[in-house]
Each structure stands twice: as C-alpha cells, then as structure tokens.
Write a protein that binds this DNA or RNA. Structure first.
Lengths: 379, 379
DNA sequence: CTGTTAGCGCTTTCAA
DNA sequence: TTGAAAGCGCTAACAG
C-alpha cells in the first residue's frame, strides 16, 4: 500500500458504505441491506433492526446509486422530452412529473425535443448507457412522429403525454371538454359568430379540441362556418396570422374566437391589435390552457384551465407501472374538469352585430349561469 | 443453472459489454477499454485499434454508465437549481447549460429551488447517493442564501450563476453595463425624469444594475431622485406595485422607467394600464433581459438583451474545471455586450413635461445615434 | 436469525 | 504489445 494517500485533491468526503454500517452494528452487510430495503423475507430481531436504522442515520449512510444501479440494471431515472422547457404552458406538466418522480424514487432528466431530432444519438446514448429507464414524451406537433417514436420505442418504454399512440401507453386530457367549455362561454355571452383557431389537424389535441368546439356549436343549434375553423397550430405567430386570416377580408367576421392554446392566444391578441380590433369590445378571445402570463396579457386573457398537473403525475405513474412490468395503458384525465377562468378578453358581442334571438342567459358582464366560477388565477 | 431463464418480462434488449467487444476482436477487455478511452499510454498496433473501433460500432457498444460511475466515483451528471424552470427568462440559461453539458459529457438534472428549501433532503440525497458531481445554482433573491449555499457547498462543488459568493466559483454578467444601456436609451430619447424599478438590494444583480443606472444618470449630468430608485424585486407583481408607487402620488412623476427584469416589466405595463398611463406616450418602459414574450406584450417591450446563453455555457465549463480539480474562479461575461432591442414601449417624453434643454440627439422616433441597432427579436 | 459469496461492467495496476 | 485480476458498493441466492 502506497504511503500517505491522504492527498485527495477534491473535498474527499468520506463515503459511508453498507459495510461501514454493518461493521458499526456488528452484523453482516446482507442483513443491513435487506433491512434497509425492507425485505419482508428478512427475519431479524427488532433490536437488530433498530440498531441498523440508528447506525445508518448516525453515520449518514446513503446507498451508492451507481452500485445499486449496476447491480439491479435499473437507472432509477427517466427522461422527459418536451418541445421547450421554458414555457409557462408546461409549468403544471413539469411540476406534476417532478412530484410524481420524487414520490416514486426517480430522478428526472429533461431534454429538449430538438436534441433528439437530428440523429437521435442523444436518446440512444441515454438508454444505451443505461442512464434512464424510460421516457415521458410530449410530442411537438410538427415533427413526424413515426420516425421519432419508433426510435424511442425500440430503445426503452415510453409514455406519451397529450397524444395517443398504439400500444405504447399514453395519457391525455379531456380536450374536447375543454374546447366545449370555451365555446359555451362565448355562446352564453351571446356570441353567434364564433371561430376556432385550432391546432394541427394531425395531432390528438388538435382533433379533440375541434370536436369539442363543434359539439358545442351544434348543441347550441347553430351552423358552423367551415371557414371559421382553422388548423393553425400552437405558436404565437400562428395565432397572430390566424386572426389576420379570419378578420382581414371585408366580409362577415366572427365576434368571438376560441384559441386552442394559450401561446397562440397571445399571438391572437397581437393580431387583433394590428388590425385595429378592440378586444373584447369587437372580438372576444378565450384560450385553452392557463398560466400566469394570462394575467399580464392585454387584455388579461380568459382561459380554460386544464388539469395538466394531474396529467403529468399520472403519466409518471404509468411509466413506473410499465417499468414494473405491467402492460401499457391509455388513460384520459377528466378530473378536475376544465375550469373557465374569466378575465377580460371576453364580453358580449357588439350590439350592432347581434342578430336573431337574444342571448340565452342574461346579458351584461355578469357570469352566466352555465359558466364555472370566476378565477383566482394562482390556483 | 436454472433452465430456460429466457422469460425476461421486459423488452430484454441484449446489453453489449466491453467483454463482448473484446471477445469479438479477440483481445482482452483492458485493451479495448484503454483504446476506447484514448489512453495515450496504450501501445497497440494500428490494425488492432481499427478492429476495436469497428467492432464497437457494429456491435453497438455503449459503455455502461453505472459501472463506469461506480468505478470512477463520478456521476457525470450535474444538478441545476433555478427558481423556476418554466420561465421564458431562463430560456438562454437552460440552453447554454444544456449545450455545454452535452459537449463536456454531463447529464443534467433540473431541480426547482423550492425542492431544496424545506429540509434540503433532496440535495443531500442527490450528492449522498452520488447521483451528481456538482451543482449550478441561480439563487432566488428572496431566499436566505447562507443557509442554502453552505448546505450545498458542504456536499458538493457548486458554481453560482448571477451571484457572487466567496470561494465558490461564480459567473455573472456585466449587469451594470446592461442597466447603463437601458438608462442611456431613455436619456437619448430626451427623458430627464427617470426611475429604476430595481432588484433586491441584497442581490448581486440588484446592486450591479442599480450602479449602472446611477452611473448613466450621473454621466448625463442629472441629479437622481432617490425616491425614484426602488428595490422591488423581479416578480411581475413587484413591477406592478412599483409603478403604482412611482406614479400614484399627485407630485412629479417619471416619464421613463428602467425595469431591472423582464417579468417585472410585464407587471409594470399592467400597473401603468391600471393607473391609466399610456405607454409609451406618457411613460416609457425599458427592461433588462429579452425573451420572446416581449414581442407579445402590449405595447411590445423594449429590452436590453443580455448574454445569458454565454453565461450559462461558461458556468458549466467552470464547474467542469472545478470537478477536474482546478480552483474556483469568479468570472464576468462581457461578450457579447448588452444589446438594446427597440420595440414600442419607449418613446420621447411628452412635450408638455419636457423642461430644460432639448434632447441631445435628434428627436422623433428615429433611433438616436447612441442606441445600438434595432432588434430582430429572434436572435 | 444471520453470514458468505458471486457478480453486475468497468478501469487500472502489474506482470508477462 | 497485450492479458489477468482486483475491486468500486450493492443485492440476492444459498448456506448455515
């Protein structure tokens, strides 16, 4: 043994290992290991158990992750792929995943979709090196999903968030209900000329939200104008252009618009300003999704809050189940129900444009009976 | 050996190990290991080297991370702690860290500040279990930093982002220059009554930005009113209240305000609307930091773009160096210089309030000579 | 009730 | 030029 190997350049925290604890207690490592892992097959006397836990605590024992991982061939970590991390829209999503992962003992690696697109080395490395056990992925609508998903699926179990994919496992929200709530809000205010600035027609959420929108319109006994259903996508820029498209031509224009996404709605507000349309006096805007930024939009944006947190929590739970060997499931989160948060971007339609029968509820700016309570934004 | 252990419930991807490669090539594992790791002490014939790389590629070899980590006592992962992930303001930061980490071979675990506050079990577990080698932390101004940092420091090397801490290692921006650029923009427009909605007085950025602001005011030969320097903090709500405070009283009010943070500036715009002040006609607002959301504010927000990406990249590099045994450094990122991005929230002050000499540059809404180029927001 | 031991895949020292 | 072997810390099968 070389003399004086004390010269450890880095902080040299002494790592406490299982055998340290075992020696301290005076038992073997296996007993300690099994006790600390709660092995039900272990039959030890209560006194021993107590001393083991006490020793672990006093010595500050923490199981070495690498060793555990090597031994069990599990990383106890999952990868999360979302289009962009730093978007207020994903706040609930990230928190839900984070909390669930913590509760289930996983670490979370966040990745941007763009990382995985080019050659997908990133993903393969992650699973190839055994760094993650599986993935939670929210697809970006524009990407060609088949390349992408099969790539991942080949490597590790995944659970899809906000989209359905055969035989994988997925969690979605009741997007139709969300869109319905948004449309009904406008109908209750007396609007009859309502447009949808929707998502990609190929995406699950895009289709579900369109369906909900159409259901509400039909239930109110109105004909929808197909020109007023747009499949714009979820970016601010898309929302901005959509408003131009809807309101530019000289003809009849909608008095209210449901925007399928909050970011797109921010763009829609800008588009309206560019055209010179006042919101909500001339155009009401209601968006699906809620986030703090809605309070600081101009005007503050009326939204439908969706249970993103619960969605994410459930997704993590499903992935955990899959990793434990269970079969993939496709679930839909319906609780809590979509909640309308009234702010200032919606109002009754302008008088001069109102035709036909009066609005079903009382007019004015009091919330109609059908609308769900007015929002404290913070939740 | 038990018969037929083929019944592997999960996908059962066959893991390719070093010894698989070695066997395939016909050499021993140590040669393969050293060749693949580029050990300069290895003296192997070129032919062997070639065959090793070829075999690794055809077999799809990926080094097992857990084993490597166990052997080397390094996690090859770092933890990132920011106040909130899902804030557009941290976009550059996250991307910079992510890119640098990727380039240097680290994985990134993201954590929210709130996770580490209560009992800090989270952090201790992370390092105690050897899951991360170190941390990059952007403190939340409000937290009591000493508890927090010592806690972390005790456990693992950290590099502070956007704050200075003795003997740790840190990276900051030239915040004074950013604030100076913002103030000079207002001065160039002809403003003489300028306020600062600043950050926490105890924070590095709060102080540096105040210093830059004061320097610009002094250099222009004006007396600053101390009532017009607020230490409000960086939240939207703080910005909103600050505007109320500055403009509520009947007395003289500023015609322009520098807001030390983009989120706070969103709040400031709201505050101005609540009071009935038109931006920029009656009040000009310029914020430090830039993000896509500035384009969708009303009016679109004039900002000073700071090199956050570079900051973050350098922080990761510094942490890497520390982990390699080098001494902590404190660095300041000055390149690229803060860049004024002109949008629509700033304009010359209202005529009726302008007193004293005329603005130094030409008036009107053309950019004065001193201002740096007008912005393409996307970068 | 508890201890011994093999081995997860890798790096690295030492020997040939 | 290359190989053998130890050992990182842990779990689990098996043996008392």
């Amino acid at each position: 043994m070389p003399p004086a190997t004390r010269r450890d350049p880095s902080a040299a925290r002494a790592r406490v290992t299982l055998s340290d604890v075992a020696r301290y207690v005076g038992v073997s490592v296996s007993v300690v290991s099994r006790e600390l892992n709660g092995d039900p097959a272990l039959r030890a006397r209560p006194e021993t158990r107590r001393r083991i836990h006490a020793a672990a605590k006093t010595l500050g024992y923490a199981p070495n992750h690498a060793a555990r991982s090597l031994r069990l061939s599990r990383a106890f970590a999952i990868g999360v792929i979302v289009p962009e991390l730093t978007n207020a829209i994903y706040d609930g999503l990230i928190r839900g995943i984070d909390d669930a992962a913590d509760a289930l003992g996983y670490q979370v690696l966040m990745g941007r979709t763009e990382r995985i697109e080019p050659g997908a080395d990133f993903l393969h490395r992650l699973v190839g090196e055994g760094r993650v056990d599986g993935f939670l992925v929210q697809r970006k609508d524009e990407t060609d999903f088949h390349d992408f998903a099969h790539l991942i699926e080949a490597a590790a179990p995944i659970v899809l968030i906000n989209s359905r994919g055969s035989r994988r496992g997925s969690v979605v929200l009741d997007d139709a209900a969300g869109a319905r709530a948004a449309a009904e809000h406008l109908l209750d205010l007396g609007h009859r000329d309502i447009a949808l600035i929707g998502g990609d027609i190929h995406s699950y959420t895009g289709r579900a939200r369109e369906r909900g929108f159409v259901e509400a319109i039909n239930a109110a006994g109105m004909r929808r104008r197909s020109a007023w259903i747009l499949h714009s996508g979820y970016s601010p820029e898309a929302g901005r252009l959509a408003v131009h498209e809807l309101c530019a031509a000289g003809g009849r224009r909608p008095t209210g618009v449901v925007v399928a996404n909050m970011n797109a709605a921010m763009g829609a507000l800008l588009g309206a300003r560019e055209i010179g349309l006042r919101v909500p006096e001339q155009l009401s805007v209601v968006a699906i999704h809620d986030a703090w930024i809605a309070d600081y939009a101009w005007p503050p944006l009326t939204t439908v809050r969706m249970p993103q947190y619960q969605l994410a929590y459930e997704a993590m739970r499903l992935l955990h189940l899959r990793l434990a060997g269970e079969r993939p499931q496709d679930v839909t989160i319906t609780e809590p129900a979509p909640l309308l948060v009234r702010r200032e971007s919606t109002a009754p339609p302008p008088k001069r444009l109102a035709r036909g029968r009066a609005p079903s509820g009382e007019s004015g700016d009091a919330a109609p009976g059908g609308a769900i309570g007015g929002g404290t934004p913070g939740s």
